[in-house]
Nucleic acid binder design. Structure first.
Length: 586
RNA sequence: GCGCUUGUAGCUCAGCCGGAUAGAGCAUCGGCCUUCUAAGCCGAGGGUCGCAGGUUCGAGUCCUGCCAAGCGCGCCA
């Protein structure tokens, strides 16, 4: 309906222009919005006011001309000018209730659309380093990314979900060294664990598995490992220098093959865990993209060569720099260090070159908000590679602060004591976790109250929405128990019997669903969908309390049953996009 | 110090490209179960939209300054 009105207004504008009543040069995008106040009808547009300046006329006069030029439509019962120049539209109630037919006809497809026109969009999210289990911060990115991807797919984009696996680089080397030290402990050696190593319990588990599989073939005397290492921080040294030396020593003592085995033991184990964790959280990927693969296929070298060719690389102080400041970044960035090693950024340039080469129309990166300073350099890199930086959207996700009631849950990565995503799921369940994560705008800090998410009271919005779905199911069970027949067709022919204000309100809200899905998708803001579902559930509950559905009058009963079946369908569809279950009984 | 983000009811948050009297949940107070599930509903109170200017028919929304909070400013990832 909204789109129909927009089309009508546009045709009215062209009519006025061809008749010379409006300057042909005036360009304006027509906006129709839902009226907030029922007295303002069902839809309203500020078009006349927006035109007033350019047309040099009073808004109300313009409004009159527009209305006169509008095509006839039986669904529009009244058009009026109000306030400073709003045009308000009143829609025929018969037409309002026909949404019930649409919902029934479309079923699970209702709300889906084709605005995306099959454009290929890549959504990269989570991409946490495989150096440990996912924590609750990653969980928010996972829920948000998964829902954004679902929404984009629902409105007709061809979505490719991807996880970038940082399986190369210094952090992974530190993990490998940590695994080896724990392995040596398993073998009975006494080592001093570095302050900068990975201290989590999972590292011991990996080491235990390694020893079980491989025996003691990687065993070295602890004294040999620790010999000639620069002192660690507790001994008054530099922890970074200490760990780097330890990594180097690990590589030397194990040799390339042994090192690879230990390294992969860590990587494979943690990656398996992450994959399983996300799977259980309802997050599925089309591709797990390996950073190591970029180096192995020479993609990093190729990307740097391309930048060099374009004249964006230069050498200084023994390092190679990318002149990103020429493309909007604050300063230039190093891509090859003095010691000849590529920086993480170099891999990332190659990764984005790869994304461009795969021909995506749009690229969506979902990052933790602490990476916001990184956006400018990636956009610069895309531009320098000859791509269009506007294709890339970077969506930032703020970390969630955990509470248990009033009490803040302390988290510390350093000590290895953090709340993992798995712990969260075990405590509050998948449905509540997903719902809570996307309930708030993603780039805002959020407070995640574990107590609230598990509570079985009206404080909990997850149950509120699910309960509405279950209640409809319950009504249909009651219908069967009474042995009454239901006729879908009879209900459709008697939609005119739905005369209660609650029913009209429900029909209006139901008809908004496709708009909400489209808006949530295009703006990458799933919280709109969550708020909508809560509102729909509210309108259903209030209707449920005010009126009896299972009445003797079959025409009225069937009409009402069709209405609540439509509500059930839309709730199921909406929760489906969030990947939250829609239970039939609670 | 510079940059990005944020500041809306006691708390947690919405507010669609600037639009009509700023909304919701929770909390508080008062009501509703012999009737399709009370994980529900009905009602009440609660606001200087951080502060000060500016832009215009109109500002919570845009611009400037200030205050406060978070994050970022490595040849780390």
């Amino acid at each position: 309906m909204k789109k129909r009105l927009e089309a009508f207004l546009n045709s009215a504008l062209t009519a006025l222009k061809t008749r010379g009543e409006l300057s042909a040069e005036i360009e304006i995008s027509v906006q129709v919005e839902r009226a907030r106040d029922p007295r303002h009808g069902d839809f309203a547009t500020n078009l006349a006011m927006a035109l007033a300046k350019a047309a040099r006329a009073h808004p109300r006069q313009i409004a009159e001309k527009i209305i006169a030029a509008l095509p006839e439509d039986p669904a529009i019962v009244k058009v009026e000018i109000a306030g400073p120049g709003f045009i308000n539209f009143f829609i025929d109630s018969e037409a309002q209730f026909s949404i019930i037919r649409d919902i029934h006809a479309a079923g699970r497809e209702f709300g889906r659309s084709t605005v995306g026109a099959g454009q290929a969009v890549q959504v990269e999210f989570v991409s946490a380093n495989p150096t440990g289990p996912l924590h609750v911060g990653h969980g928010r990115g996972a829920a948000y990314g998964a829902v954004v991807a679902n929404l984009l797919a629902a409105v007709g984009f061809n979505v490719h979900r991807e996880y970038y696996v940082n399986d190369a680089g210094r952090q992974m080397d530190i993990l490998a060294a940590s695994v080896w030290l724990r392995y040596l402990e398993e073998c009975g050696e006494t080592v001093v664990f570095p302050s900068n190593g990975y201290r989590g319990e999972y590292v011991r588990t990996i080491a235990w598995g390694l020893r079980k599989r491989e025996g003691e073939k990687f065993r070295c005397p602890a004294a040999e490992v620790m010999a000639d290492l620069p002192p660690d921080e507790p001994q008054g040294g530099d922890k970074e220098a200490h760990i780097d030396a330890l990594v180097a020593k690990t590589k030397t003592l194990l040799g390339p093959e042994g090192y690879r085995t230990v390294f992969d033991a860590g990587l494979d184990s943690i990656l398996d865990d992450i994959q399983q964790d996300l799977e259980e959280f309802g997050v599925r990927y089309d591709e797990w993209f390996s950073e190591r693969g970029l180096t192995e296929t020479q993609a990093v070298k190729r990307a740097l060569a391309k930048l060099k060719e374009a004249g964006y690389l230069y050498e200084q102080d023994g390092a190679v720099w990318f002149a990103s400041s020429r493309l909007g970044d604050e300063k230039d960035r190093v891509v090859v260090r003095e010691n000849g090693q590529m920086t993480y950024f170099a891999s990332d340039i190659a990764y984005h070159m790869n994304k461009l080469e795969r021909g995506f129309d749009r690229i969506v990166n979902i990052w933790g908000a602490d990476h916001h300073g990184y956006i400018a350099r990636i956009k610069a890199a895309i531009e320098a590679l000859g791509g269009d930086p506007a294709k890339l959207s970077v969506l930032l996700v703020q970390f969630a602060v955990l509470y248990r009631g009033e009490e803040k849950v302390q988290m510390s990565t350093r000590s290895g004591e953090f709340v993992t995503l798995r712990q969260l799921r075990n405590e509050v369940g998948k449905d509540a976790a997903r719902f809570f994560y996307v309930m708030r705008k993603s780039d805002q800090h959020m407070e995640f109250d574990l107590k609230l998410a598990t509570s079985r009271t009206n404080e909990n919005p997850v149950y509120y929405v699910q309960y509405a779905h279950a209640r409809v199911c319950s009504v249909f069970r009651q219908l069967d128990e009474k042995g009454w027949e239901r006729s879908l067709a009879n209900g459709m022919t008697h939609l005119g019997r739905l005369t209660e204000p609650h029913e009209a309100a429900l029909a209006t809200t139901l008809s908004r669903y496709p708009e909400v899905v489209e808006q949530s998708a295009l703006q990458h803001e799933p919280h709109h969908l969550v708020h909508y579902l809560r509102e729909l559930a509210y309108e259903f509950h209030t209707y449920y309390n005010a009126h009896q559905f299972l009445v003797e009058d079959a025409a009225l009963r069937d009409a009402r049953l069709n209405l609540i079946a439509a509500v059930r369908q839309v709730i199921a569809n909406g929760l489906g996009l969030l990947d939250v279950s829609a239970p039939e009984a609670m």
